[in-house]
């Protein structure tokens, strides 16, 4: 009723056009700095050096082995990292909320501060931890996909842990106590009471993580593994290393299409979760 009331106040306060005019400036900023560039990326991808419209660039880029490997790497790394984040983030959240220990609050905040750090920090510290001359001296591990996956798990775990922790704080403690008093063992309580409750939050966090890991650039760049080329790395190398704009644009269009697909999925999940979450709050 409140939002409906607001919609009615508009015309009472001024003419009907004015809300549209007010919304224009930020949208102009976005159109000029995001939409227009993205459209040009699309146009550039079908335009060759001489300004002729052609699908030649698409053909050559999509046919190249390096592109196939990049797609494979991107999807594999994003998928594995997301799975890791979901497992680890859920575990962290459950321990911090339901098996608390002295200092668990501080630990939660420490994980949270990771969110404020740049992702390449993780990659940089990994060179000291897992590099040939580092703490663990694992040889070539640093330059493998697995190292990138581990680094992304490290960085993105908070993106799952945070919503899961938030969902757990909405879970009334009485419900766990009642379940236990009815004879359910901790494993059963976890499976039948806790996990279903936080599943929507974990799903939303996981979807966001998948989106962000697909787009992750800093970690891959800083680890600098020559064999681990991902789509964003390909955009970078084609764009500013070899200055082949049309090819870079083709890869970028593929990347955006992939992300947009996931983004729409994420917004759908998230808005539904939001609606249900609103119902849960008294």
């Amino acid at each position: 009723m409140t939002t409906a009331a607001l919609a009615v106040v508009g015309p009472a306060r001024a003419t009907r056009v004015s809300p549209l005019l007010w919304a224009l400036p930020p949208l102009v900023v976005l159109a000029g700095f995001l939409i227009y560039p993205l459209v040009l990326v699309g146009v550039q991808s079908v335009t060759n050096e001489d300004g002729v419209t052609t699908l030649e660039t698409w053909r050559s880029v999509l046919g190249a082995g390096e592109f196939h490997r990049a797609i494979g790497n991107t999807v594999l790394i994003a998928g594995a990292a997301t799975a890791g984040c979901i497992v680890l983030g859920t575990f962290f959240a459950v321990v911090l909320a339901l098996v608390p220990f002295p200092g668990s609050g501080a630990a939660a905040r420490a994980v949270d501060t990771l969110l404020a750090f740049p992702s390449f920090l993780i990659a940089l510290s990994f060179t000291f931890l897992y590099g040939a001359a580092g703490v663990f001296q694992l040889g070539d591990f640093l330059y493998s996909r697995w190292c990138v996956i581990l680094a992304e798990i490290t960085f993105y775990t908070p993106f799952v842990m945070r919503p899961a922790l938030a969902a757990l704080t909405h879970l009334p403690a009485e419900r766990l106590a009642v379940a236990a008093s009815l004879g359910a063992r901790p494993g059963q309580v976890l499976r039948r009471v806790v996990l279903p409750e936080i599943a929507p939050a974990v799903a939303a966090g996981g979807a966001l993580t998948l989106l962000l890991t697909l787009n992750e650039f800093g970690i891959v760049l800083f680890i600098g593994a020559k064999d681990v080329i991902t789509l964003p790395m390909l955009v970078h190398s084609k764009g500013v290393v070899t200055f082949d704009y049309p090819s870079a644009c083709v890869v970028a269009v593929v990347e955006v299409a992939l992300s947009a697909l996931l983004y729409l999925l994420y917004r759908r999940i998230f808005s539904r979760k939001g609606a249900r979450g609103a119902d849960l709050v008294p």
Binding site: L34, P37, L38, V41, L211, L214, N215, F217, L231, P232, V235, H236, G239, A252, E255, V256, S259, A260, L262, Y263, Y266
Partner: peptide, 8 residues
């Protein structure tokens, strides 16, 4: 949020 920063 959804678009890779490299593409931006």
């Amino acid at each position: 949020v959804a678009i890779p920063s490299v593409v931006v």
